[in-house]
């Protein structure tokens, strides 16, 4: 692990002192070892003052570009209908905080129930998808094995050609999965895109590691679980996030396959809040008023909170190098 390496390095040789090998470290290299608490990334460097200013500016602009609209989302969700109307639809700073939109969505227990469904579907779905994807990706990373080309093409074609809804519905119906949560998981459980990404990562790992293990007589299963998976943790986390977000955001299959509304996932329930009064041409009598802006924005906030909660666990895997010293053993 990177931080270990850095820590070891700084223990061993304080700033400026010659290394055991006797080489004087360059200033750049030295710097890795001098930062105490905030061990900088090993690839890092201390920029000059001008670059630093530019970087700070870029940082602030990026944050502002993203956060300002989100401030509006949150503020609008917390505003009264009157305040939103007066502001022309979007509120930057709420004049008075109103939780009306949230209470409207959260009372009655329907949303809580659907949240539970969504959590179950997302957790189970992501687990199933990851297992299937990693197994297949590893298998396909071994170029030249039996039927390799054909299987790879079989996967790739699913990226290019998608079945239409009706035959898929017939299959799901035929499997007896209508009105079950399986219908929300299995039909979308494999993404060729994700599979190809994981495979690409595995193939990008130093082949020497794998060869060495195989020469030592390790089974494919051992190589997969002990080498490929631990070394691909970052991409597995990312692809897990992709899968998770897909399951989390999906509403269409639930709409199609579920009759019992108590099995509806969160996004389908939230969709009804956004749709209320955004009627099709069929209702041209105007009897269904358009949804309140506050509710629309509260829906965004509610849907995004679980993602915010989960993301740090994924991010952990995006900050650490996985290969430190792996080659040296």
């Amino acid at each position: 692990m990177r931080s270990d390496t850095a820590a070891r390095a700084s223990d061993a040789s304080p700033a400026g002192t010659p290394t055991p090998a006797g080489t004087k470290l360059t200033a750049e290299a030295t710097q890795f070892r001098t930062r105490g608490k905030y061990a900088p990334p090993i690839w890092g460097h201390r920029p000059g003052p001008l670059t630093n200013i530019l970087r700070v500016v870029a940082f602030v602009i990026l944050i502002a570009l993203v956060l300002f609209p989100f401030l509006i989302v949150v503020s609008t969700s917390l505003s009264t209908g009157q305040a939103i109307t007066d502001a022309g639809g979007l509120v930057v700073i709420p004049t008075e905080i109103s939780l009306e939109a949230y209470t409207r969505i959260l009372t009655g227990g329907v949303v809580t129930q659907s949240l539970l469904v969504s959590i179950v579907v997302t957790a189970a779905g992501t687990a199933i998808s990851l297992v299937v994807t990693v197994l297949a990706a590893y298998s396909l990373s071994r170029v030249g094995t039996l039927w390799h080309r054909g299987l790879l093409m079989t996967v790739l074609l699913t990226f290019l050609f998608a079945p239409s809804i009706i035959p898929l519905y017939v299959v799901v119906q035929g499997l007896g999965m209508l009105d079950t949560l399986w219908a929300l998981i299995l039909p979308t459980s494999l993404s060729a895109f994700n599979l190809v990404i994981v495979r690409g990562f595995i193939m990008n790992l130093p082949p020497e590691l794998f060869e060495a293990a195989r020469i030592d007589g390790a089974s494919e299963w051992w190589v997969l679980t002990r080498l490929a998976v631990p070394l691909s943790k970052s991409v597995i986390a990312v692809v897990g996030l992709f899968y998770g977000v897909t399951y989390w955001n999906a509403f269409f299959n639930a709409m199609l396959y579920l009759r019992d509304t108590s099995n509806w996932p969160l996004q389908l329930v939230l969709r009804t809040y956004v749709l209320q009064g955004a009627p099709l041409t069929l209702d041209n009598t105007g009897e269904i008023p358009p949804p309140s802006q506050a509710v629309q924005m509260a829906v965004v906030v509610i849907a995004i909170i679980p993602v915010l909660l989960v993301y740090p666990f994924v991010q952990r895997h995006l900050t650490k190098g996985v290969l430190t010293g792996a080659l040296k053993g």
């Binding site: 990226f159 998608a162 079945p163 809804i165 979308t188 897909t246 999906a250 269409f252 299959n253």
Partner: peptide, 19 residues
Amino acid sequence: IPTLSRRRFLAGSAGLAVS
């Protein structure tokens, strides 16, 4: 992630989802 539902939506059946 290329969510298939959008493509399916366009690939085949009627859809007014977004509309």
